[in-house]
Amino acid sequence: MSKVMVVDDSLTDRRVITTYLEQMGLTVLDVNSAEEAMEKLSQYQPSLIVLDVVMGGKSGFEMCRSLKADIDTKKIPVILCSSKSTEADKIWGDVVGADAYIAKPVNRDELIDKVQQLITA
Rank of each mutant, 00 (worst) to 15 (best):
M1G: 05
S2Y: 10
K3I: 09
V4K: 04
V6A: 04
V7T: 00
D9V: 01
S10Y: 08
L11E: 03
L11W: 10
D13V: 00
T19L: 15
L21D: 02
M24E: 13
M24W: 04
M24N: 14
T27D: 15
L29D: 12
D30R: 11
V31N: 09
A34D: 03
A37I: 01
M38S: 13
K40G: 11
L41K: 03
Y44P: 05
Y44H: 12
Q45T: 15
P46H: 14
L48W: 05
L48P: 03
D52P: 03
D52M: 07
V53N: 02
V54K: 00
S59D: 03
G60N: 01
C64L: 07
R65L: 15
K68V: 01
A69S: 09
D72E: 09
D72C: 03
K74H: 13
P77F: 05
C81R: 02
S85K: 08
D89A: 09
K90R: 12
K90D: 06
D94H: 13
D94S: 14
V96E: 02
A98R: 08
D99C: 10
A100Y: 03
A100N: 02
A103H: 06
N107W: 15
R108Q: 04
D109T: 13
D109E: 15
L111R: 05
I112C: 06
I112H: 07
D113F: 14
K114E: 13
V115Y: 08
Q116N: 12
L118P: 05
I119K: 00
T120F: 11
A121Y: 12
